[in-house]
C-alpha cells in the first residue's frame, strides 16, 4: 500500500499520460468534496461538474510540466483550485458567496490558473484555425496530429494514391493552418 503522497504522485503521472483510470480515481476520491463546496455556495450540481472538469484541466497542465512538484496533498490542491475557479464564476455571475470566510483560498493557485487560461486561449485559436481550414484539410491534419495515424493509413483512408501524395497534401494543409493560426495569434497578442 502506497502512502498518500506516493499515491498522489502516481495518479498525477497517470494523468500526464491521459490514463483514464487515473482520471476516474481522482474523480471518485475528490468529486464529492468539490460538489459540497459548490452546493454550499449558491451553485448547482451542474456547476460542480463544470468546475471540477475545469480543475482537471488545470491539473493536467500542471502534471504535464516535467519539472512539476506537488507541495501539498492532491486533495488540498484540487480544493484550492476549485474554490478559486468557483469564486471567479460567482463574480462573473454577480452572485455573492454566502460563506465568505470558508471561501478564502488557502494556497496560491493564481499562477497555475493563469497558465491554464492562457493555454485554453491558444487551444481556442487553434480550434478556430482548424475550423476555418475546412475539409478535407481539417480531417487530414486531425488524423495525423491528433489521432496519430500513420501516413500509410491516412493515404488509405483519404484515398490518396500513396503515402507520399498524402504527405504533400498534409504539408500544404499544415502551411495553411499555420497562416490561419498566426493571423489570429498575433492579433490576440
Amino acid at each position: 500500500m502506497l502512502n498518500s503522497t506516493e499515491h498522489d504522485k502516481a495518479l498525477l503521472r497517470g494523468l500526464a499520460t491521459k490514463d483514464s483510470q487515473a482520471i476516474e480515481q481522482i474523480y471518485r476520491s475528490h468529486y464529492q468534496m468539490v460538489q459540497y463546496l459548490v452546493l454550499q455556495n449558491r451553485g448547482s450540481e451542474d456547476d460542480a461538474a463544470d468546475i471540477f472538469q475545469e480543475a482537471m484541466m488545470v491539473l493536467f497542465e500542471k502534471a504535464s510540466n516535467p519539472s512539476f512538484e506537488l507541495n501539498c496533498q492532491l486533495k488540498t490542491y484540487l480544493y484550492a483550485v476549485c474554490k478559486h475557479l468557483w469564486l471567479k464564476k460567482l463574480k462573473l455571475l454577480k452572485r455573492q458567496p454566502i460563506r465568505v470566510t470558508d471561501m478564502e483560498v488557502a494556497i496560491p493557485v493564481d499562477e497555475d490558473i493563469e497558465l491554464y487560461e492562457k493555454q485554453q486561449q491558444h487551444f481556442d485559436i487553434m480550434e478556430q484555425a482548424l475550423h476555418k481550414l475546412g475539409e478535407p484539410c481539417k480531417s487530414l491534419l486531425e488524423a495525423y496530429y491528433i489521432e496519430k495515424q500513420h501516413m500509410q493509413e491516412i493515404a488509405a483512408r483519404f484515398l490518396y494514391t500513396n503515402a507520399n501524395n498524402a504527405k504533400t497534401q498534409k504539408y500544404k494543409c499544415l502551411m495553411r493552418l499555420k497562416k490561419l493560426f498566426f493571423a489570429q495569434y498575433k492579433h490576440n497578442l
Binding site: 483514464s20 480550434e127 496530429y145
Partner: peptide
C-alpha cells in the same frame, strides 16, 4: 509545439468526457 499541445489537450478532454459520462 502549439499543435502538439492542442492535440494533447484534445485527447485528454476526450478521456475526461468518457470518464464523466461513465460516472
Amino acid at each position: 509545439n502549439e499543435l502538439e499541445k492542442y492535440s494533447n489537450l484534445k485527447n485528454y478532454t476526450h478521456t475526461i468526457h468518457q470518464t464523466v459520462s461513465k460516472l
